[in-house]
Every structure is written in structure tokens, then in C-alpha cells.
């Protein structure tokens, strides 16, 4: 009996741990299932902390249950039965069926001919657009630098006479772009060259923008450059050029307004032979009489004409296109 009792007791002893083990394992399983779905690390920490108290045999099963729980939880790659809900409803553009297709696609990266053409054409387009805009804004800045605040820095009122002996003032420049050059008729080489250049510029601008420019040559040598001399001299260059002269004081005042340096002896005898030193710039003045830009000798006629035409095309205000001599 004792044996049997022992046996039963032994059996009971043997059963009891088994049943407790079963209940505890059940508890572990459910807790694992519950917690894994919400968050992974704390539950596994709990499981692994609980496990050393159990027999080692429980470990694989518990782990199994954990992995199972994980799969249930949120891994969309292997849906356990129901289809995975996709992020977008649209059908994928290229379904790559075989691994070769995937490899072939990934070999060249995300680039193909269409993408390359689009990329390059967009780049080229943007480049030209930005270059154009940059130039336009730079011109605008130059043109507006002298606007607004107080008196213009270059240019201003003057009172002179043209080659026909008529009065010509700054007001006669209104409404047209004016290209102002300072020179003198007895000039050895630079002035004739520059006036030839001016003639080319005038033709170029007239051809492209119409009759918008008023070419003016102001003499720095009023003692020798009378209206008749100017008239005779300028007709060799361009019929449009207006030659201006005046009294020494008026010329001096005009040159000062245009920041032009010149050195004519104030008292010269008729027939005296001398040279006049003067600055050689073309001054572009806008239709409101404000200074736009100075163009030096380093510009060719074509370059200078382009600079001026760009400014003229930017001009939004009214432009007088009537012939000056009409």
C-alpha cells in the first residue's frame, strides 16, 4: 500500500507539477499573445524573465508562440489568410514578375531614356530661363540705380544750340532714348572712330527697335565748333546725329552735369591749332532724361547696340518714335 500509496503519491507528485506547468504555460502563452500584438520588447522581456522559473522544455514552445504572435501582429509580407490592404488603390505601373526582371530593372537604377530626356530638357530649360532672368534683373538694377532719389547723378538740364543754330535743351531729349557723346571736330583719331561706331549703332537700333534713339554729339570745343562746322562734320557720319554747341560756359556746365572731363583753353584765337582732351564715353539716357549706362571704347558697335536695345526693350513707359528732324 505504501508502495502503491507511494506510487500514487509519486504519481500525484508527478502530475501536479505537470498541471501547474500546463496552467503556467497557458498563462505565458496568452500573455505573450496579448502583449506581442501591442509591443514587442516588453512582452518578450516578461516571457524571458518568467521562463527561467519553468523547466527548460517550455522554452521552444513559448518561443514558438511568441513568433506566432508576432506574425499575427503586423508583418504584412506573409498574410496569414486575409489579403493585405495596399497603401494605394492604383495598379502598379510595372509588375515585375520574375527575379530577372527585377534584376534588369535594378541594374540601371531608376534611370531610363525618358527620365534622362526629361531631366536634361528640364535642366536646359531652367538654365536658359535663369540666365535670361538674371540678365534682365541686372539691367533693371542698372537702369533703376539712378532713379528715384533726388537728382540724377549723370546728366541734367542744359541749354545749347544744334548744328542748325536752333536752341536745344534737355527737354528736347524727352520721350526718346538719347545716346550722348562728347567730342570735338578737330579730333585726330578717337572721335571719328567713335562717331563711325555711333552711326553703326544708330542703324542697328533703328532696324530693331524703330526710331527711338536720339544720337547727340556735344562739342567740348565751342571755340572752333560752330553750328556750321558741326553740320559739315557730322553729315559725313550719320544724318541723325545732332551736334550741339554753345557758349563756353554752357558747354562747361553741360560737361560738368555729365561728369565729363575736358580741357579746352578758354581763350583761343581764331585759327589756333590745339587738341582737346576729354573723356570718351557714350552716355545712354532714358526717355525721362535719367542716366542708364555709360558705354566705353572697349565695346564694339554690335555689343554697344545690344546693350542699348536690351534696355530699350525693357522700357515700359511711353516712347516717342517720331523723326526728330520732321
Amino acid at each position: 500500500m505504501s508502495v502503491s500509496c507511494n506510487c500514487i503519491a509519486g504519481a500525484m507528485r508527478a502530475i501536479r507539477p505537470a498541471s501547474t506547468l500546463r496552467t503556467e504555460l497557458h498563462a505565458v502563452r496568452t500573455s505573450a499573445r496579448r502583449t506581442v500584438t501591442s509591443s514587442h520588447s516588453p512582452s518578450s522581456a516578461i516571457v524571458y524573465r518568467a521562463l527561467p522559473k519553468q523547466k527548460t522544455i517550455c522554452l521552444p514552445r513559448a518561443q514558438n508562440s511568441i513568433w506566432h504572435g508576432r506574425n499575427l501582429g503586423g508583418n504584412p509580407r506573409k498574410p496569414p489568410g486575409q489579403p493585405v490592404r495596399p497603401f494605394s488603390n492604383s495598379t502598379p505601373r510595372c509588375k515585375l514578375k520574375t527575379i530577372e526582371q527585377v534584376r534588369a530593372r535594378n541594374k540601371g537604377g531608376p534611370f531610363n531614356l525618358t527620365a534622362a530626356i526629361l531631366f536634361i530638357s528640364a535642366g536646359v530649360g531652367l538654365y536658359f530661363y535663369f540666365t535670361y532672368e538674371k540678365e534682365r534683373v541686372a539691367r533693371k538694377r542698372i537702369a533703376e540705380q539712378t532713379k528715384g532719389m533726388g537728382k540724377p547723378k549723370v546728366g541734367g538740364p542744359f541749354d545749347l544750340i544744334d548744328q542748325d543754330g536752333q536752341q536745344f535743351t534737355h527737354e528736347d531729349m524727352q520721350g526718346k532714348y538719347a545716346l550722348v557723346y562728347f567730342g570735338f571736330t578737330h579730333c585726330p583719331d578717337i572721335c571719328p572712330d567713335e562717331l563711325d561706331k555711333m552711326a553703326l549703332m544708330i542703324d542697328k537700333i533703328k532696324e530693331n527697335c524703330g526710331n527711338v534713339i536720339l544720337p547727340i554729339m556735344i562739342s567740348c570745343d565751342p571755340a572752333r565748333d560752330t553750328p556750321a562746322v558741326l553740320k559739315e562734320y557730322l553729315k559725313e557720319f550719320h544724318p541723325d546725329i545732332i551736334g550741339l554747341t554753345g557758349t563756353y560756359d554752357n558747354i562747361k556746365q553741360t560737361c560738368k552735369a555729365y561728369r565729363v572731363y575736358f580741357s579746352t583753353p578758354p581763350n583761343v584765337k581764331p585759327g589756333q591749332d590745339y587738341l582737346v582732351d576729354h573723356s570718351i564715353y557714350f552716355y545712354l539716357m532714358d526717355p525721362e532724361g535719367d542716366f542708364v549706362e555709360a558705354i566705353g571704347r572697349n565695346f564694339t558697335a554690335d555689343q554697344a547696340a545690344k546693350v542699348m536695345m536690351d534696355h530699350i526693350k525693357d522700357w515700359k513707359g511711353p516712347l516717342n518714335k517720331k523723326e526728330h528732324w520732321a
Binding site: 562746322v229 559739315e232 581764331p270
Partner: peptide
């Protein structure tokens, strides 16, 4: 020239 001043070289 017409008004008495010397003409510039042409």
C-alpha cells in the same frame, strides 16, 4: 566754314 570758323578735317 559758312559762319567763319575753320572747318574740321573731313
Amino acid at each position: 566754314s559758312a559762319d567763319g570758323a575753320f572747318e574740321a578735317p573731313n
